[in-house]
Each structure stands twice: as structure tokens, then as C-alpha cells.
Deep mutational scan, measured.
Amino acid sequence: MQIFVKGLTGKTTTLEVEPSDTIENVKAKIQDKTGLPPDQQRLIFAGKQLEDGRTLSDYNIQKESTLHIVWR
């Protein structure tokens, strides 16, 4: 499925993911596209910070959802 990651600059990155992907895995995909290391990424969805060990489905993140990224 496709999801979007929007940064503070307003730039949006598209990712191809599975609902079973962990947040850690998603951060690795973001690094592949942007070069930003996972330890500098904070992902937010529906006002919650996403924890590395959880999956996208744990947070009810579905296709075409938009996550927000904040740099540490």
C-alpha cells in the first residue's frame, strides 16, 4: 500500500509499505529516500508519536494515510 510522509518543509515523500511493517522498517525506507537516519526521525500520526516496535496496523494506518515527520 502507499502512504505519504510529510515533513516540516511541506515536502511529501511517498512510500510503498505493508500494514505489517514495523515503524522501524518504515524509518529505514524513509532513510533510503531522504538520507535522514532513523535515529533522527520522529513519526507522528493522529497526534501520536509512533514507536519503533509497533506496526502500521497497530496504529490503524491505512493506504494513503499521511504521517508527519519531525527531525530530532
Rank of each mutant, 00 (worst) to 15 (best):
R54F: 13
E18T: 14
K63C: 06
M1G: 02
N25L: 12
F4M: 06
N60L: 06
Q2M: 13
L43Y: 02
V26Y: 00
V70L: 11
G7A: 09
T9N: 15
K33Y: 08
D32F: 11
T13S: 07
K29L: 09
Y59V: 02
Q41P: 03
K11T: 11
N60S: 08
P38M: 15
E24C: 06
D32S: 13
Q31N: 07
L56R: 01
T12M: 14
N60M: 07
G47W: 04
D39F: 10
N25W: 10
L50K: 00
M1A: 02
Y59K: 00
N25R: 15
S20N: 13
V70M: 10
V70H: 11
L36A: 06
F4G: 03
K29F: 05
E18Y: 15
D21Y: 07
F4S: 04
I23Y: 01
E51A: 08
A46R: 12
K27N: 02
Y59I: 02
G47L: 03
Q49C: 11
E16D: 12
L36G: 04
L8R: 10
W71T: 12
K6R: 13
V70P: 02
T9M: 13
A46D: 12
I44V: 11
R42C: 12
H68D: 10
T55F: 05
D39A: 12
T9K: 12
V17T: 03
T55S: 07
L67A: 01
G47V: 02
D39Y: 11
L43K: 00
K48T: 12
N25D: 09
Q41C: 10
T9W: 15
A46N: 15
A28M: 14
Y59A: 02
T14R: 10
A46G: 10
P19E: 06
T34C: 08
E51F: 07
I61P: 01
P37Y: 06
S57Q: 12
E16T: 12
T34E: 05
M1D: 02
T34V: 08
E64D: 14
K63H: 15
G53K: 10
D32I: 13
T22S: 08
I3R: 01
Q62A: 10
D52F: 04
S57I: 08
E18G: 07
I69S: 03
P37S: 10
G47I: 02
R54E: 04
R72Q: 14
D52E: 10
L50S: 01
F4A: 03
I61F: 02
L15Y: 08
Q62G: 12
I3F: 01
V5P: 01
L8F: 12
T14H: 05
D21A: 06
K48C: 07
S65I: 04
N60Q: 10
K27E: 01
L43S: 00
I23P: 02
T34N: 04
I61V: 10
E24S: 12
W71G: 12
S57Y: 08
L8A: 10
K33A: 13
P19S: 09
Q49T: 14
I3P: 00
T9R: 12
R54H: 12
K63A: 15
R72V: 15
K33T: 07
Q31K: 11
K6W: 06
E18M: 14
I44C: 10
T22M: 07
N25C: 09
G7W: 15
R72C: 11
L67Q: 00
E24I: 10
Q31Y: 15
D58C: 02
L56E: 00
E64C: 09
T14K: 09
